[in-house]
């Protein structure tokens, strides 16, 4: 039979993908596959894991504003060991599209340790280094705002793996181009952006923040113009692929079962 060409087929570095659409870490899990055709995705990115289990931030952790969502989850996750022992086998069994593991460390050393552990595991096509979570103190954003640190991190990890090494950047910086370039120079094979931007909502009745932690991460429709602008700048600064997020698709994908025809 004649093979039907898929016009959406693309690649990310060495990775062949059914479509250029991936999911945003933390907003999509296996449950969501009940609503869409998995093969429509280019890759599956899991929720960020850290070296040790993280309880996450105190509630309330969410608030929907007039133009998007505030969250303060705080990277609640079972930790690397449990992820490898319990989650990874299920992901391997369920996924037909490439798995990209998102992870974050509290130090360069921890990032390195985690990568080494994950390198020993099969069924992983790439990594997304989350250096951009606005909701935690140690892991996350402290790395992503300093070009030198981003460079060091990528230079440290890129020789250790042949898998895709995506760096997920934060919009909370002065010049995204410089950071993006630092990641490329360090050996990252792709960039993804943006993670959530700092945001806040106040309950007018008592003057208190709607989130227990005060400030959270802002995603959704309100950040789209910013996300577009930063993606544009980032893409101009480097030659490696840039994956865009910021209400491009996830909102719809998460909350609707419509699938891809509505993009």
């Amino acid at each position: 039979m004649e093979q039907i060409l898929n016009p959406l087929q693309t690649s990310l570095g060495r990775l062949k993908m059914n479509s250029p659409v991936t999911v945003a870490s933390g907003t999509f899990a296996l449950e969501n596959l009940d609503f869409i055709v998995q093969e429509h995705l280019g890759a599956y990115v899991c929720k960020t894991i850290t070296r040790y289990p993280k309880k996450g931030n105190p509630p309330p952790r969410l608030y929907e504003t007039e133009a998007g969502l505030l969250n303060s989850i705080g990277l609640q996750n079972p930790g690397l060991d449990k992820f490898i022992a319990e989650d990874l086998p299920i992901l391997r069994k369920t996924l037909t599209v490439p798995l990209i593991v998102s992870f974050s460390g509290a130090s360069l050393n921890e990032f390195e340790q985690m990568l080494e552990c994950l390198e020993n595991q099969e069924g992983i096509s790439g990594y997304e280094l989350n250096v951009s979570c606005p909701n935690v103190e140690n892991e996350g954003i402290t790395f992503g705002i300093d070009p030198d640190v981003v460079y060091k991190l990528c230079a440290l990890l890129s020789p250790l793996t042949n898998r895709e090494l995506i760096v997920k950047l934060t919009p909370n910086v002065t010049d995204i181009g410089v950071i993006t370039k630092a990641a490329e120079d360090g050996g990252a094979t792709a960039i993804s952006l943006i993670n959530t931007i700092w945001g806040m909502a106040i309950d007018y009745r008592n003057g208190m923040s709607m989130l227990k932690k005060g400030i959270g991460g802002y995603s959704g429709i309100g950040i789209k113009p910013l996300a577009l602008a930063l993606t544009y700048r980032a893409a101009q600064a480097v030659k490696i692929p840039v994956i865009a997020m910021g209400e491009f698709i996830t909102g719809r994908m998460l909350w609707n079962s419509f699938g891809l025809e509505h993009l």
């Binding site: 449950e31 969501n32 996450g56 105190p58 509630p59 952790r61 969410l62 989850i73």
Partner: peptide
């Protein structure tokens, strides 16, 4: 009661101790 986003266990937004 908790403020929810996904309602299906994905986002961890509705967590309580």
């Amino acid at each position: 009661e908790a403020y929810m986003a996904c309602g299906i266990g994905v986002c961890y937004g509705c967590a309580i101790p």
